[in-house]
Design a protein around this nucleic acid. Structure first.
Lengths: 256, 256
DNA sequence: CATTCAGTGTTATTTTTCTAACGTTGATTT
DNA sequence: AAATCAACGTTAGAAAAATAACACTGAATG
């Protein structure tokens, strides 16, 4: 095993370049490209800390979406996924043909996106890179990405004129996610740059849906962005004794 | 093999949802999730036309960047990649610490991006999704994505106020790619929505670099966007008898 | 000049994945 | 009721990938 990062790191850099344009590189080709044996590439990958990972004999960029958690969705995640899936299934019920949807950042709404392929005419507005990537793959969904400076923490963009950009769009339904929902302290998230787009979407959308799993109830996060009754619908996975899932369009308070 | 798309398609839909949030799913888990044998999942994948592909025992979304050409970069592409690589190596020579770069869409400049990780302080401005994804993976490069409506053909965004957005940024160097370069007919590309951002970048950047391989010379494409002497530097892979690779900042004409 | 050791190649072995063939089930048809 | 057939499971074999062990090389060190 190489202790110093000599030629090993150089090879990995070379391979990373080759992979940067997207795609996969077979171990055999990688070895040939670097003019070493496959075993050496293997060792490079295990020894050195690298963004490249080996997936069934093929090199892929591990930090690319769609590969990212090589640390697979296993048992626990699969069950946790079920929860998110059910949540999105409920949210899906509110979506109709021809809608222009605002999709918030985070992982909550991701399971919803692939479901959108069932529609014929749909527009998705988002400021999140992961959402954009998933939607870009859908053939019959128009994608509008609100750009700006990229914030890695939330995989989303922020810009001073994002609010204005959102208001110019005819957003039909806003699907908003949150990290905390509290009856008194309102709805909050982790990152402050998310506040402006969320608020703008809430302000312009004809229907506002808050999509949160029950674990977020009673939690307060640093960035407040809305009161609970700013939303027309709250989509949740659990039927609490003191909450109603659908509050109608009449701004009926939740958890009252 | 299933002739009608009955349960098979349903399973694939279910799996696609699971994968939509990004990540991979082991065949074993996929089988368990659908409550069938691994063989059945295998058959689903081979029989049905689907966006999911099997990569070393793991299910991945084939249309995600970083996996997309499962049809790997093989011999031919690897050699063709060498050309692009050399081209970008030359372009790299013009980049300095602290630069704010405009990176054009297309695949030409992709090999350049991973090289950018060697810098400590860099900002990349782009309107292309594939570029954004590659840059988002780099820890020490700031990313500014110019959003708008997504055009799948060029994996890039278009917007009516993109020119204004570009002009507000302090772009240092603009790296522009092209599909056609002709001495008389100027520099052109395929898609008309690319014209506005390219022109805006050329207008505001302090230094303008045209990065094109020699195969583009003498070619004219539908969308004209600049004259050849709008560029300060032309970076090319071949030394032609009647061309100079570096034209300096003095707007010296190329191919004169 | 012998020794050490990082770096690499080679080979053999194990493990995993892939493929092809055949067997089962249950609904539908004749 | 026998025949058919789609849908699926099971098994066994082939192919590929991962791992482990050992051998070679050449530069640095004593």
């Amino acid at each position: 095993m190489p202790t110093t990062n000599g030629r090993s790191a150089l090879r990995l850099a070379k391979l990373q370049e080759a992979l940067a344009s997207g795609g996969t590189l077979h171990l055999r080709d990688a070895a040939e490209l670097c003019d070493v044996s496959e075993m050496t590439i293997r060792r490079d990958l295990t020894t050195q800390k690298t963004a490249i990972s080996l997936l069934g004999g093929r090199l892929v960029m591990a930090n690319y979406p769609g590969v990212t958690p090589i640390y697979d969705l296993n048992e626990q995640q699969a069950s946790h996924y079920q929860a998110k899936h059910r949540l999105c299934q409920r949210a899906l019920a509110y979506i109709q043909e021809g809608d222009t949807l605002f999709i918030d950042c985070g992982s909550t709404l991701m399971p919803l996106l692939s479901q959108l392929s069932h529609f014929h005419e749909l527009t998705v507005v988002t400021y999140a890179l992961n959402v954009a990537n998933a939607v870009a793959a859908l053939p019959n969904v128009r994608l509008v990405l609100l750009g700006g400076l990229f914030y890695p923490a939330s995989q989303s963009f922020g810009s001073d004129n994002m609010a204005a950009a959102i208001e110019r769009l005819g957003i039909n339904k806003a699907l908003i996610s949150a990290a905390g929902v509290d009856l008194e302290r309102g709805v909050s998230c982790f990152h402050f740059h998310e506040v402006a787009p969320k608020q703008a979407a809430i302000a312009t959308a004809m229907q506002r849906l808050l999509v949160v799993d029950a674990s977020k109830f009673g939690v307060v996060r640093p960035a407040y962005f809305a009161a609970l009754d700013d939303f027309d619908v709250v989509v949740t996975d659990e039927e609490k004794t003191h909450s109603s899932q659908y509050l109608g369009c009449g701004n009926a308070p939740l958890l009252s």
